[in-house]
Each structure stands twice: as structure tokens, then as C-alpha cells.
Computed example of a mutant assay.
Amino acid sequence: MIISRTPVRVSFCGGGTDLDSFAKKVEGGGMVISVAIAKYIHVTVNDRFDSKIRLSYSKLETTNTVEEIEHDLVREALKATGVSNGIEITTIADIPSRGTGLGSSSAVTVGVLNALYKHIGRDVSPEHLAKGACEIEIDKLGEPIGRQDQYAAAFGGMNRISFNPDGVEVSPIALSRDLVERMEREFSLVYTNNTRSASSVLSEPPLDQGDKIARLRAIRDQAAEAEKLIRSGDLKSLGALLHETWNVKRGLSPLVSNDYLDSLYSRLIDLGANGGKLLGAGGGGFFLVHGPPDLRSRLVDDLPPENRVIPLKIDHDGSRIIHPK
């Protein structure tokens, strides 16, 4: 049996500039600052006695051929690795695997590819996994998404990820042990109890294309500022920058936020957060918030149970095979 473990990610600033429609057409390309977190997609791959293909995720599938598979990400990953029959694949997620704003769908693709490559005897690089996942999701399936999630999941850690017509460049941001501990104390994730398809939000045409490009340029500039603040350890200013980013992001599309999300964000600020933003394309998922170390306990005490609060814990490994070791 092969088991892969792949992290999801938190994007501090720059989300939206990783889409090809911006990164490959606007001077300067795109840039995000993101970190992989210790919430994982586990994928198991095992041989079957017969020649059928069995998948277990939120539903069960048993098919005779790859083409019959309904799970599009797994189907294309099987095609990409040349595995055609006699296999069983299971995916297990620490958090909902779609619509959370944490890049979980791409983590599934990266994790399935990693496990399948190991199954056929190939050890592949994070770069290979990320490129392969982008080819599946964007090139083959035509999803209107960006390229940051695949690279964040494959590489792990904190990174500046740059996007341009020539490709994607991952530049690690070194974090001291003290800074990691401070980030993990001061940043929290708050579940909105709503999920949404990133594709549905990202495919919505903007009311004003010129305004959208201007906002994305501002978001890219905020990513550069976020990197400076992280490297200097100024987390309070980083939290305030998240607030500015959220205000810019809300104007990208009417689907990014709604009355409920605006009300929840105001509640988070009232409880002591000095800034935050909704992760992912918008419309639901998780808020990332920053505040003093005692903020998390206040959030847990004051928010209803459906607004689950999760500590931010950084993953440093990226997608890896955990069995066999």
C-alpha cells in the first residue's frame, strides 16, 4: 500500500493574480505569498486482486475502465501516470475537500499523482507534481482557476510564488523557529459554515474589467508588502494588511462576499482581530484572522459551534509519501 500526505494552503496576499488571464497578460505577472498548513489530504493506493478500479471518497465508484470514472481529478491522474486497471484509491481529508478556500481540490490532485507515481516506481519532484496537477485541472479539465494551490501543496512551507508567461517560480521564505511559533499563536482560521465552488466565483464576469485589473495589481503589490512584513516579523502590520486586502478583494465580484460573511467578519473584528480576509476565491470557506495570542480563546468562547476555529499550524514538507517510508 502507498499512502501520500499533501497539505492544503493559506494564501496571505496575491490571490487572483495567479490566474493565467492576469499572470500571462499583465506586465509584471502575478505573485502570491502562501504557506502550507498542517491540514492534509491523505491518499491511499493499493493493488486489487481483480482488474477493476475502485475509488472511495465522498462516494464509492467501481469501474472496469478509467474512462468510466466520475471523479475527474482521479480519472485524469490515472491517465497521466498510465495506470489503467487493478487498483484501489481512497482519499481522506482533514477538512472538506471542496469549497473551503484552502486549495483542497488541488491538494487532492497533487496527492493522487504522488501516490500513483510511487505505485509505478517513480519518485518525482515537487515541480513535476505541481506542473502535472496544473495540466490536469487547467489544461485538460478547463477549470478557471489559478496555479498557486498546486505549487503550495507540492512544495510545502512558506513561499513567494511568481507567475508569468514563462512559467512559475517558487522562492522559499525562511522562517525562524521564533517566527513560526508567533505566527502559529497569532493567526487562526474561522470556518464560515458555507462552502462554494471556486470555479463558479472565478468564472463570473466582472462588472468592470478595468477596475478588476486595477484591483488585482493592488493585490499583487500587497503580496510584495506582505513578504517584507513576514521577513521583518511585523505580524501586527501583516494582519492590518490582510484587512486592506479583503477590502480590495470584495470589489472583484459580487460573489466574493455577502451580508452573512460581512457580518461575520465584523464580529471577528469586534472580538479583537486586527485584520483578516476570506481565503480562496470567496463566497465561503475560512476566514484567516490575526490578533493577540488570547484572540483564539475569545473566538472559541463567543462564536457559535458551526464557526469552528482552527489554529494555523505550518507544514514544512509539502506532498510526501508517508508509507512505505
Results as ranks from 00 to 15, higher is better:
residue 152 A to V: 11
residue 122 R to K: 08
residue 188 S to E: 06
residue 103 G to Q: 03
residue 184 E to T: 04
residue 100 T to P: 07
residue 122 R to N: 04
residue 192 T to Y: 01
residue 200 S to V: 04
residue 194 N to G: 07
residue 104 S to K: 03
residue 223 A to R: 01
residue 114 N to R: 06
residue 196 R to P: 01
residue 193 N to E: 08
residue 192 T to N: 07
residue 143 E to N: 07
residue 120 I to Q: 01
residue 205 P to H: 00
residue 160 R to G: 05
residue 205 P to V: 00
residue 203 S to E: 06
residue 107 A to E: 08
residue 184 E to Y: 01
residue 199 S to G: 15
residue 149 D to E: 09
residue 168 V to N: 13
residue 143 E to C: 02
residue 149 D to Y: 07
residue 187 F to Q: 01
residue 169 E to Y: 08
residue 177 R to K: 15
residue 117 Y to C: 00
residue 218 A to R: 12
residue 203 S to L: 00
residue 155 F to M: 13
residue 182 R to A: 14
residue 125 S to E: 14
residue 217 R to C: 15
residue 119 H to V: 07
residue 193 N to T: 08
residue 162 S to Y: 12
residue 196 R to K: 12
residue 189 L to Q: 02
residue 124 V to G: 03
residue 179 L to C: 13
residue 149 D to W: 07
residue 202 L to T: 01
residue 200 S to Y: 06
residue 123 D to Y: 03
residue 127 E to A: 15
residue 159 N to M: 08
residue 159 N to R: 08
residue 216 L to W: 03
residue 103 G to R: 03
residue 161 I to K: 01
residue 194 N to P: 03
residue 182 R to V: 09
residue 220 R to F: 14
residue 109 T to Q: 03
residue 180 V to W: 04
residue 105 S to Y: 02
residue 111 G to W: 06
residue 206 P to A: 00
residue 151 Y to D: 11
residue 107 A to S: 15
residue 170 V to D: 09
